[in-house]
């Protein structure tokens, strides 16, 4: 390295502390000997050091709480196949999903009221003759049906809320319903297609995957791929459709490939999945 060769290109590495000791010493010698490089280094290093003096910002403690709430809701979501007791569900719900909208709170209160009545019926039937128990069992089944209906209403109401986090709660709540009817599925499909928030759309996609064996659901998921604008949702849908080998997926993939505006990563992923599907 001579004083004739300027070394400004090496300065970013030098500032980062790269190079061996002897290389650094050579560079330092050059900086002393070459006025142009020396000035450039001096001004850049002053700013580089000033940047490190800018104080670090700390997030609020609420962020950790939000993260923990999200993580436990997610963990609960992926365990939805496991049977939870009524009380566990109720406790979990109260802890994490207590809604903020008055209308939904009202629905929730009604739900709890019916739920309490069911529990009351259950404990009250102990020690009664079998005929009375059978009658109670029918009543219990009816009341459980009502709980299911209220749960459905709650889920659908939450999915209509303005806040994205409320809508995610709505999606999570649909996953707790033992049976999802046409209304719930329809709302989830609407959410997947049109919700403005990517995270809500992804959550809706996950929830719908549970019902993908039903032809109407699977075809809605295939059609939804064409409606998605976010590459993230496109990628996630491509993965699910390919993994579940959903009929019509390959045809939709080929149609997507015709779109010149399609994101490069999505395009590559679709090509990979088409090959795997033997297309």
């Amino acid at each position: 390295m001579t004083t004739q060769q300027h070394i400004v290109d090496l300065l970013p590495d030098f500032l980062m502390g790269s190079f061996t000791e002897s290389e650094r010493s050579n560079i330092q010698s050059h900086l002393k000997a070459c006025a142009a490089c020396g000035r450039e280094y001096e001004s850049l290093s002053m700013l580089w050091n000033s940047l490190s003096a800018l104080p670090e910002e700390k997030p609020s403690p609420a962020m950790r709480e939000r993260f923990n709430a999200m993580l436990s809701a997610y963990e609960q979501g992926i365990r939805h196949g496991e049977t939870l007791s009524f009380w566990q569900s109720l406790n979990g719900f109260i802890g994490r999903f207590w809604p903020t909208q008055p209308a939904v709170q009202f629905a929730m209160t009604l739900l709890l009221l019916v739920g309490s009545f069911v529990l009351g019926s259950r404990t009250g039937s102990e020690g009664l003759p079998s005929a009375a128990q059978a009658s109670d069992a029918t009543e219990l089944a009816e009341l459980r049906g009502e709980v299911q209906a209220m749960g459905r209403m709650l889920a659908v109401s939450l999915l209509q809320q303005r806040s994205a986090s409320e809508r995610i709660k709505g999606v999570s709540w649909t996953e707790r319903l033992p049976v999802a009817d046409e209304q719930v599925i329809g709302t989830l499909v609407q959410t997947l297609n049109y919700d403005p928030n990517v995270n809500v759309r992804l959550a809706a996609m996950d929830a719908l995957t549970k019902y993908s064996e039903e032809p109407e659901v699977s075809s809605s998921m295939v059609e939804s791929l064409a409606k998605q604008t976010s590459p993230l949702v496109q990628l996630a849908l491509v993965e699910v459709l390919a993994q579940l080998k959903i009929p019509g997926a390959a045809a939709m993939f080929r149609q997507m490939l015709k779109d010149e505006q399609l994101n490069k990563t999505v395009k590559e992923r679709i090509q990979e999945r088409l090959t795997q599907l033997g297309e």
Binding site: P59, S60, A62, M63, R66, F67, M70, L71, Y74, N199, L202, L232, A236
Partner: peptide, 15 residues
């Protein structure tokens, strides 16, 4: 920024 951090960890779970 706090919302975005939450979003990143959500995405880590999703992906």
């Amino acid at each position: 920024s706090e919302d975005l951090v939450q979003d990143v960890f959500f995405r880590i779970l999703k992906y």
